[in-house]
Structure formats: C-alpha cells, structure tokens
Amino acid sequence: MSKREKTDTTGFDPRRRKALGEMAKHVAGATVAAAAIAGFARQSGALPATTLRPPGALPENEFQSACVRCGLCVRDCPYDTLKLAEWGDGPAIGTPYFIARDIPCEMCPDIPCVKACPTGALAHGLTDIDDARMGVASLVGRETCLNMLGLRCDVCYRVCPLIDEAITLETTHNTRTGRHAVFEPFVHSEICTGCGKCEKSCVLDEAAIKVLPVALATGEIGGHYRLGWEEKDRAGGEMVPGLIELPVRVPEASR
C-alpha cells in the first residue's frame, strides 16, 4: 500500500524503472545484433565475376533472399559442376555456384538442378536450357586468342552447344600476312547461355574467352536512344519525309 502511495505522489516506481532499463538493454542489444548481421549480409551480397550461379538463378539480390542453401541442386547435378560456397570462395556461404574453367555447365535438357530447388531461387519457369542466362561469354583476350592471331584454333566455337548461333566465326582481313583471313570467335550475347564450355576448353594457359556476369559483359544502351534505321523500318519509311536534302556531289557527267 505504501508503495502504491509513493508511486502516486512522486510518479517514481523503481520496478518500472528497472523494467524500462531491462527493455532498453535488450532493444540496444538487438539493434546492435541486427546491424551487425545486416552489415555482414550486405557485404556477402556481392558475387565475384569469376563465379557463376546455376541455370535459372534469380538476379543476385533476389537470389540471396530465396536460396536456403540446402544443396539439393548440387546433389542433382550429374556432372558435379555445382558446389556450395565455403568461406573465402566468394559467393555467400552455403550458396551454389560453379567455375566454368573447372567444370562448366553441361546444359542438361531436363535441367535437374532447377527441378530440385525447393524455393524457386532457381526459377522453375526455366524449362528450356537454351533460355538460361548464367552469364555471357566474352573474348577478353583479343591479343592472345589464337584465332585472333590468324591461326585456326576454333575450339571454343566447336564446343559451343549452340554452335553457329551463340558463337560464330566472323572473318576479317589479316593485315599481318596481307593474304589470309582472321576467323574471330564472335559471341552473340542474346543467345549465349553462359554455360562456360568455351572457357573450359580454351587451349591457352589462361582462357582468352571467359564467361562473365551479364551486366559486366554487355553494355546497355540508354532507354532514350532511338536508332534511326530501326525506327525507319518500324515506320515503313522515312520518319519525316524530305527533311534533309543533301547536295549531290556526283560529277555532272556520271549522273
């Protein structure tokens, strides 16, 4: 009763003060813990360019919210391509990845890794492996690639599961010899699945062709750009007929 009176007259209650103190301690502790974990999580969110996600993997930031690190995709990969990341491997710990130069994706038509994924971190919408976008092959070693030196290696082109679609050989004049052609392995980024078979089979000590994350390997044109020739095709003719009249410089005699 006396305690009650005291509370009423002064507004001070030692029990309440203690409870509030406890509360503050826990809130502070939880905030520190949350901040520490969140900071750690953000740091672990970056995927190194040398590591590739399995087919169908959501974009990296979404993948981090979806992958429960169960390893079922690893178990169902018939070629032991996939691994779960350890500390220091680069990708967030426990998440699946592969390194093309070690074991590339063999592009199974039934995509067992995607089927095994319980959460959809590997999107189940991927039903045709040719639609996979694990990355994009890029001829980064243009000065070391044997084909670019004018030789006929062609291995990356030959092993490509989408030969003549994802990689084509584009011929240009060989200025060194003056009489031969250079057969440049040319990657078509809209078709390349990023399986990495080209990188794996490149005969150089360090692969001249490498699979890179799509964003690293491709540019992106500004959304405001309009390519005149495409607009013209779409419109079925000149956009503004007769806008530019250019002077005719052909000699009078040959008109």
């Binding site: 406890e22 949350a34 969140a38 919210s65």
Partner: peptide
C-alpha cells in the same frame, strides 16, 4: 536473461527484411 534470444530472433528477421537476404544463414 533467457528472453534475450527473442530479441535476437527479432534482430535476425529485421536484418533479413532490411537486406533482402536470409541473414542468419550467413552465421
């Protein structure tokens, strides 16, 4: 207090929501 773990649980969920990751699985 043993109840501290409930705050840790809250912190883990808050960290997951804030970073868009499955935060506790990192550790």
């Amino acid at each position: 207090r043993p109840q501290a773990r409930l705050w840790v649980l809250g912190a883990v969920l808050a960290a997951s929501a804030a970073t868009g990751t499955i935060a506790f699985e990192l550790i």
